[in-house]
């Protein structure tokens, strides 16, 4: 192999550089935070769907919600259990989950995701 030293150094730098987000994450992150429920959410016991589904797929669901409401004009969500909800992030989700910083943000920050919902949708006022 030509330039053995250079090639291997190159590969090492490449690998380190491209895995750096994971490496940094390993060092930086502690245990994942638990989302905190607001009193109203606690009282309701269940979200529009089962908790596991919401944890896993809320982003997909929100994407469906916005398409159904805006594009299809279907603004009522009939949940699996038959209950009906108004399809609205700002007025339905956040009405219950009014503690955005503890319910949404800390997890999103932990996972380093930055949803742009709040560039337009108005966040609930939190009592600090």
């Amino acid at each position: 192999m030509y330039n053995k030293g250079l090639v291997i150094t190159g590969i090492v730098i490449f690998v380190v550089f491209f895995t750096s987000p994971f490496l940094i994450g390993l060092v930086k992150s502690g245990p994942p935070p638990e989302p905190e429920l607001s009193p109203k959410a606690k009282l309701a016991k269940q979200c529009v769907e089962a908790k596991e589904y919401m944890v896993e797929s809320h982003m997909q669901m929100l994407n469906d919600w916005r398409n159904e409401a805006i594009r299809e004009g279907k603004r009522i969500y009939v949940a699996t259990d038959g209950k009906e909800y108004t399809v609205s992030l700002q007025n339905t989700c956040m009405d219950c989950h009014s503690n955005k910083s503890k319910f949404c943000d800390q997890c999103h920050n932990y996972a380093e995701v930055n949803p742009y919902c709040w560039e337009c949708h108005i966040e609930p006022k939190e009592k600090l």
Binding site: E49, Y53, K74, R75, I76, V78, V87
Partner: peptide, 10 residues
């Protein structure tokens, strides 16, 4: 599996 949920207009 999830998909019993539906959307409808008001």
């Amino acid at each position: 599996e999830m998909g019993k949920a539906e959307y409808s207009p008001n």
